[in-house]
Simulated assay, not measured.
Amino acid sequence: MQNRSTSMPTPECPDEPLRDLLAAVLEALDIPAPATVGHADAYRQALEDRAMHARVALENVLVDDGTQLGIEWETAYLRERLAEHPSTYVTVDQARAALADGKSWMEAVQPTGGEGR
């Protein structure tokens, strides 16, 4: 099918299992920014861990060596790994919400354990 305004092919929508895997990869990589510079190391570590799990899932789907477990399995496994690695830093949105609730800045940016994404 052609897009008449640009004469470029209209991209086809990927099937549901592939869309679900791509959504899980986006969830892995699209984590919220930390509220302070002091949380930057925790943010980088969380992103590094999550990116590694996403890379492994993509590699397992793309490698054609007869050992694939399928896109659905890889997607579920990726989501399980992501759930095991929640962020441990305070996000910008969490700090803003705490400030709106009347907390001080120091209280707002104090990690409470596993509350980010």
Rank of each mutant, 00 (worst) to 15 (best):
V25H: 10
L99P: 00
V37K: 09
R55H: 00
A35T: 09
H39M: 03
G113L: 15
H85A: 06
G70Y: 15
R117D: 02
T91Q: 03
A95N: 00
V63E: 14
V56S: 04
P86E: 10
L47W: 05
T91A: 05
A98H: 13
E74I: 11
V90A: 00
T36H: 14
E72K: 00
R55N: 04
S5C: 01
E115Y: 05
R4D: 13
P86I: 04
A97C: 04
A24D: 15
E48Y: 07
P11S: 07
R4Q: 10
R117M: 09
R117I: 01
C13N: 15
W73K: 09
A98Y: 13
A54L: 04
E72L: 01
M52H: 10
Q45G: 07
L47G: 08
A46E: 13
E12L: 15
E72W: 05
G114T: 14
L47R: 06
I71W: 00
R19E: 15
I71G: 04
V56R: 02
Y43W: 10
E48K: 08
Q110F: 08
D15N: 11
A35P: 08
L62D: 02
Y77N: 09
T6D: 13
L78E: 13
E80F: 07
P111V: 14
A97P: 00
E80L: 12
L22W: 09
V90G: 07
L47Q: 01
D65K: 05
E12K: 11
S5I: 09
L29I: 08
I31Y: 05
M106F: 03
W73S: 14
R19F: 10
W73G: 10
P14T: 05
G38T: 06
D20M: 12
A57M: 11
M52Q: 06
A24F: 14
V90D: 07
V25N: 12
T88N: 01
H85E: 06
P32R: 03
P111H: 12
W73F: 15
W105R: 07
H85D: 07
W105Q: 10
R19C: 12
A35N: 08
P32G: 04
H85W: 04
